[in-house]
Simulated scan of single mutants.
Amino acid sequence: MDTLPVELITRISFLACTDGGLTACSLSRVCRFVRAAACPARYYSVSFDGASLLPLRSFLSVYQAEQAGKPRVHHLFISTFPLRGGELTPILHSPEEYTSEVGTLLRTVSAALETLTCIGFRRSIPDLVALGTVFPVLEELTICDMPNPHRLDLHVPDVSRPLFPALRMLHKWNRSIEPWWSAHAPGLTHIRISELLPHDFALGPLPDGSAYHCLKQLILQPRIRDLNVPFRAASFFWNSSSATDRVPLCILPLEQGAHRSTAQFKRCHRTSRRQWVARLEGQPGCWGLPVLDVNAKIPNVLEIVGWKDIVPY
C-alpha cells in the first residue's frame, strides 16, 4: 500500500466509507500514512443509532473543532432507535434536548449533505421547514416520525428561496406529502410513501399533485387493515385529467408481517438503514421495484383508499 499514490488511496477510501462511519474510524487507526490519505473521506457517511445524546455531542465537538478545509459530511443517517436491541420503541429521556442537538447537527452539516435519513419518535426529529436551514445539494431524503396523529399542514407558502433546491427523491413513512414540498423542493422527480396510514387516504396519492411538474415516479404502499384479498405490486397512471401529465404510479403491498403495528418503528428503522446503505453503494434501495403485474386487478384496494384519478398503465 505504501507504493500506491495518495490520490488513489483517497478515492478507495470514499468507496469504502459507506457504512455510517465504522470503516472511516478503522482506517484512521491503521497508520499515519493511511489516516492522512483517508482523511477526506473521514465523514463521508455518518450514522447515529439510538436516543443517546452523547454520540451527537461528541461528534459535534470534534467536527466543529476541525480546522479550515475539514472533510465534510455527505451522507447522514439519524434514528432514535438503537441499531441492536429488542425494544419496540426507543426510550427518550430528554426529547427536547435530543431534538435541539439534532437541529444543531443538521445546520452544521447542511452545506455538503447529499442524502439524509431521519427516523424519529414522538417528534424527536425537528421539522425541517421550521428549522429554516437551506440544504443546497441535498438530493435524497427519507423521513419518518411516528406515531404522528397530527393533521397535515395543507398550507402552501409563498417561497422565495426553497430549502431543498436540489432535492430529487423524497421518501416518507406513514404520512402523505405535505403540499409545501412542492414549494421547497420544486425539482422532485421521485416520491415514495411507505405504509401510508388510512386517515391520509382521502388526500389522494398527493395533495395538489399538479404542482409537481418534474415528477416521474410515484410509489405508494397503503397500510390497509383487515384486507382479505392479497395483491401483487401493480402499475398505473395517476392524474388522468391530462394525458400529458400522467405520472407512473406503482402500488405496493405491505411486506410480510408488516400488519403488526407494534413492530412498525423497529421495522422502519432497520429497513430505512438498509436502504440508505444500499443507495450509498449504488443500489436502487427503496426505489427498486418488484416485477410489476400490468394486468393485476386490485379493485378492493382502490375502493378502500378511494383514489379515483388512477387509470391502467
Results as ranks from 00 to 15, higher is better:
L131R: 04
G132N: 09
G132K: 07
T133F: 08
V134L: 10
P136N: 08
E139V: 06
T142V: 09
T142P: 02
T142N: 05
C144V: 04
M146V: 10
P147Y: 10
N148C: 05
P149D: 05
H150R: 06
L152V: 05
D153W: 00
H155P: 10
V156F: 08
P157A: 09
D158I: 13
D158F: 09
S160M: 07
R161H: 11
L163T: 13
F164A: 05
F164H: 09
F164G: 03
L167N: 04
L167A: 03
R168F: 11
M169C: 15
L170Y: 04
L170S: 06
H171I: 03
W173T: 00
N174G: 08
S176P: 05
I177N: 01
I177M: 06
E178H: 05
E178D: 13
E178Q: 10
E178R: 02
P179H: 02
P179A: 03
W180R: 11
W181A: 03
W181F: 11
W181P: 06
H184V: 01
P186H: 13
L188T: 04
T189G: 09
T189W: 05
H190R: 15
I191E: 06
I193S: 01
S194L: 00
L196K: 07
L197M: 06
P198K: 06
P198A: 05
P198T: 06
P198C: 04
H199C: 01
H199A: 00
A202H: 12
A202K: 08
L203S: 01
G204T: 03
P205V: 08
L206E: 03
L206A: 01
L206T: 03
P207I: 01
D208C: 09
G209S: 06
Y212E: 04
Y212L: 03
H213R: 15
H213N: 14
C214I: 07
C214T: 13
L215H: 15
L215K: 14
Q217S: 12
Q217K: 15
L218N: 08
L218M: 09
I219T: 02
L220N: 02
L220C: 10
Q221N: 10
V229E: 14
V229T: 15
P230K: 07
F231T: 14
R232K: 15
R232S: 15
R232E: 14
A233N: 12
A233R: 08
A234C: 12
S235A: 14
F236E: 03
F237D: 10
S240A: 10
S242L: 09
S242C: 12
T244M: 10
D245H: 09
D245W: 07
R246V: 00
V247C: 06
L249I: 00
C250E: 08
P253N: 05
L254S: 02
L254W: 02
L254V: 05
E255A: 14
Q256V: 15
A258R: 07
H259K: 07
S261E: 06
A263P: 08
A263G: 13
Q264G: 09
F265I: 02
